[in-house]
Computed example of a mutant assay.
Amino acid sequence: MSKSGTGDVPPDTREEIMEATFRALSKHGYSNLRMRDIGEEMEMTRQVIHYHYDGKYDLMSHFLEYIIEQYEGSVEIDGDAPPREELDVRIHRCLFGPEFEDFSHWDRMKVYHELFTHAQNDERHREIFNEHYGRIRGSITEVVEDGIEQGVFRDVDAERMGQMITDLIHAARGRKLSLDQEDAPEQTWRSIDEFILDSLVREE
């Protein structure tokens, strides 16, 4: 358990610690990362990390939540947007990400996926990833359900559709990051658009 819940860490302090963690992870990787490495990336004293977090494991759990917050909080959709438009926005954001002042979307995804590879041996991180994937899948499923109710989408299994799109997004990220297939996100975006979303729309 952390010494201080996320809500108890001053926002500026939390952001500095988390962004320093990004920089340190990018340089050293997860396996070789030391708290000292994070402290060297900060203007604040390293002791502030130890004051708020119970070591590397606790910090990494909060760091993972920080990454996820950035993505889940970055999707802004007009409440009156048609279901197809909302799906486009949500899927595009998952594939290409928001813009950041420091570290690009793919810099951040590289760190995210490195932590993902360790989740099989880490119950807490696996739980955080599962919750995040559940929310992505759920948000897509909900839009599909709304489209079906409005009569603009065909009557399909919305949960299976949400799972398939979520799986495609994850596979595209993995291809780019692990296999260096730079065009994977764009290829997947075009495939989802043409083979899934176009066919999902009910014909007049």
Rank of each mutant, 00 (worst) to 15 (best):
T141E: 08
S178I: 12
S178V: 14
E186T: 08
H118R: 11
V75N: 04
R154P: 05
F129T: 05
P83W: 00
M35Q: 05
I136P: 03
G97K: 01
A171C: 09
E131R: 15
G147N: 01
E69Q: 15
S199T: 15
E19W: 09
E65C: 09
D8M: 15
D193L: 09
E194S: 09
E40F: 10
Y66P: 00
I17L: 02
L59F: 02
S4I: 12
T45N: 14
R175H: 11
H50A: 15
E114N: 03
W189L: 07
V89F: 06
M60H: 01
P11E: 11
L87F: 01
M60P: 01
G39Y: 01
E127L: 14
F116L: 13
L177C: 03
Q120S: 15
V111W: 00
D58P: 06
E16R: 03
E159G: 12
A20K: 00
F153N: 00
A24T: 02
I77N: 02
W106T: 02
R34Q: 07
L177M: 02
P82C: 04
R137S: 12
N32I: 06
M35E: 05
L59M: 06
S199F: 13
T166W: 03
I169M: 05
K3G: 13
E40D: 14
F129E: 05
V152A: 05
I148D: 00
A81E: 11
M35P: 02
M161K: 03
E194Q: 09
Y133F: 14
T6E: 11
V75E: 04
F195Y: 13
D12R: 13
A119K: 08
L25I: 01
D80K: 14
T45C: 14
G151S: 03
G138H: 08
G138V: 08
H50K: 14
E203V: 11
R202D: 10
K3M: 12
R108S: 05
L197G: 00
D80Q: 15
G29Q: 04
S61E: 12
R202T: 09
E72I: 13
G134D: 03
D80E: 15
D58N: 10
G174W: 03
A158G: 06
E145D: 07
H118A: 12
R124E: 10
F116D: 06
H118C: 10
E159K: 15
D58M: 10
R135D: 10
L179A: 08
L200D: 01
E65P: 03
E41R: 05
A81H: 12
K56D: 04
V144T: 01
I128S: 00
V144K: 00
E186W: 04
L200T: 04
E142M: 10
G7R: 15
E123D: 14
E19Q: 12
E123N: 15
R154L: 07
D107M: 07
L168G: 05
S178R: 15
E76Q: 11
W189E: 06
L25D: 00
S26N: 09
E182H: 11
L87M: 02
A158Q: 05
